[in-house]
Design a protein around this nucleic acid. Structure first.
Length: 579
RNA sequence: GCGCUCGUAGCUCAACUGGAUAGAGCACCGGCCUUCUAAGCCGGAUGUUGCAGGUUCAAGUCCUGCCGGGCGCGCCA
């Protein structure tokens, strides 16, 4: 089934083409910006009228005449407004018909995409040398949301957690690990805090010249495939992966070990990348390093900007690995679209990688390569966010604090619940609040990290949405709420109609998020949906209403619960029956 | 120096990608729980959308130039 917006846009666009004589017009139908403008508004008439040098209101009138002739059951009435808008009011009967269909089949609330695609989503990708910190939150959460949205639409999704498990810093860590290991110390305990371990290794590296040399030798041994060093490396990686998996589980993020495609996976391909670039005459040597220069990238004085593929000492760089990853995704996985959920600082890097990949045919001409960039986390002073001592805040610490605050709140709000129930609720609400705080902001902008803002439970927050859901659930389990058949029959109250229309608009938003990858659009929608329900809840008694109205409102509440839980699920947020 | 990006209410953010009188939440003031969960609802105050031009029937959104912040730009990832 088409969304309301798609249906109207197709319909009005066709009439606009007929009225104007121009093929393939876009009526540009959007949801009305204000209630008094109806349910949807047509924005596309005015620019077209300008092109044709005719009066916009006349063109609008001509479009309306054609729409009236079609007599589409969805449209109740229309009027021309302002300089040439067409305001469209929808027929209640059609809204009710759609509601009926969805109540029969709640999964139809979000219809499948017309042409399912295979899509790689590259996200989270922490550096395994260190503990995950707050900076990893955004990419992990946004990526997971996109994955859920696209998967829900029926696309085939391949998650790629491109973790950093290779490079010079691992020499240092292995050297330190081997030293400790020889002293018969319990390794998991030593690695319990990776950040501390990293600092200890780094400190030794910086202060002890003998150790530093051992560390450098360790890199060479590791890269040469020495079994002992590889074993130590694997041990470290395995331990670190357990740390990140614990975070994913706590966050209710869908990543697991099978989604790992670590940097080291591409080691075997790196020399091939160089060879193929060479074959295609894309490589040149500059100051001893092998580089690709592309005309579209120039630096100061119009000089071409290099992408360094191989260092003068023969080592490879992350650009090389990224090219290998593009090649693997395009030619081996054969995906249609590849999303890189990576912070905005790397946008030049990805522009270059995508361009080189195209030029060298590492990427097929048809694959869509998209950098889903997101902004940085800043402190309240507007500077990159660190603790007072200059360290990153560990993600576990943030999550634990969120859960603590949620526990305090639920204890205050609902003291009647037993401790076990309060703990469960606190965990769910705390995590949800953190995730929603990230998702509800436009991903491209930097944002200020602030404990109280992020862990706020009022207004446009996850708890507000979850509260709406819990309120519905508590009604639906009451004695008078059991019904044989759910059907909405009453839209006479404004709050009823507003709520139903909002529910029916969910697929429009999902479609937009799938295309543009802005999860905050879904959050905005959800906030409006929950707000519509809250107003309905205040204005329209459900259980106390007369039989027919009661059944209709129960059906509407049921449908709202479905819309809320399905949308929250797309955000990766769990619902609660009580809170 | 070049490039990217951001600048919206006291604070944190929206604004369906060029549409109608720029909206929410915090915070502040007032009203609503013997009635389905008050983590809620209703009402009030808050703006030269950094500045100056330009394009357009229409600009927070596009173009140019300033001002201010952030980030990136050859062998880290």
């Amino acid at each position: 089934m088409q969304t309301l917006k798609q249906h109207l846009n197709t319909l009005v666009s066709r009439c606009l083409s007929e009225a104007s004589g121009i093929a393939d017009c876009n009526a540009n139908v959007i949801t009305a910006s204000k209630p008094e403008f109806g349910d949807y508004q047509v924005n596309g008439v005015m620019s077209l009228a300008k092109q044709l040098k005719i009066a916009p209101r006349e063109l609008a009138q001509s479009v309306i005449v054609r729409l009236l002739a079609i007599n589409d059951p969805m449209i109740e009435r229309m009027e021309i407004a302002g300089p040439g808008f067409i305001n469209i009011h929808l027929q209640n009967a059609q809204l009710l018909a759609r509601a009926d269909a969805i109540l029969q089949q709640p999964a139809d609330l979000i219809p499948a995409a017309r042409n399912p695609k295979t899509i790689v989503v590259d996200y989270s990708s922490p550096n395994l040398a260190k503990e995950m910190h707050v900076g990893h939150l955004r990419g992990t959460i946004i990526g997971d949301c996109l994955v859920r949205v696209l998967e829900r639409q029926g696309h085939r999704i391949i998650r790629q957690n491109h973790v950093g498990d290779w490079g010079t810093q691992f020499g240092m860590l292995i050297a330190h690990l081997r030293e400790i290991g020889s002293q018969q110390v319990d390794l998991p305990t030593q690695l319990e805090d990776l950040e501390t371990f990293y600092r200890a290794a780094k400190n030794r590296f910086d202060t002890d010249e003998v150790f530093a040399e051992t560390a450098r030798q360790s890199v060479v041994k590791l890269q040469g495939g020495d079994p002992e060093y590889l074993a130590a490396w694997r041990q470290f990686i395995d331990e670190s992966l357990q740390h990140s998996q614990a975070i994913y589980d706590k966050l209710n993020v869908t990543l697991s070990r099978k989604d790992l495609k670590a940097e080291s996976f591409y080691n075997k391909d790196l020399s091939t990348i160089v060879d193929e670039l060479e074959e295609k005459s894309l490589l040149s040597i500059s100051e001893g390093a092998r580089c690709v220069f592309l005309p579209e990238f120039t630096g100061k004085d119009g000089e071409p900007l290099p992408v360094i593929i191989q260092k003068s000492d023969g080592g490879y760089l992350y650009a090389t690995t990224d090219l290998a990853a593009v090649r693997y995704r395009s030619h081996t996985l054969k995906v249609d679209r590849c999303l890189y959920v990576v912070d905005a600082r790397q946008s030049l890097h990805f522009q270059q990688i995508f361009a080189v990949a195209r030029a060298a045919d590492f990427a097929s001409p048809t694959i869509a390569l998209e950098h889903i960039a997101y902004g940085m986390m800043l402190g309240s002073d507007g500077k990159p966010f660190k603790t007072r001592s200059g360290d990153n805040i560990k993600l576990v610490d943030l999550l634990d604090e969120a859960i603590r605050r949620a526990h305090r709140l639920v204890t205050a709000k609902n003291p009647g619940l037993d401790e076990a129930a309060r703990l469960t609720i606190a965990e769910t609400v705390g995590i949800a609040a953190v995730k929603y705080a990230e998702l509800s902001k436009n991903r491209t902008s930097d944002y200020i990290f602030d404990w109280s803002t992020m862990l706020s439970f009022e207004g446009n927050t996850a708890p507000y949405l979850m509260y709406a859901y819990a309120r519905i659930k508590s009604i639906l389990v009451k004695p008078g709420a059991t019904l044989k058949k759910y059907q909405i029959t009453s839209l006479s109250e404004k709050a009823e109609r507003d709520l139903l229309l909002k529910i029916l608009q969910l697929p429009e938003i999902v479609e937009a998020v799938a295309t543009d990858c802005y999860p905050n659009q879904l959050c905005n929608y959800l906030y409006e949906l929950a707000g519509s329900f809250m107003r309905f809840y205040e204005a329209c008694p459900i259980l106390k209403a007369a039989q027919e109205i009661r059944e209709s409102r129960l059906a509407l509440a049921t449908l709202t619960a479905a819309a809320l839980s399905q949308s929250l699920d797309l955000l990766g947020i769990e619902t609660l029956e009580q809170m």
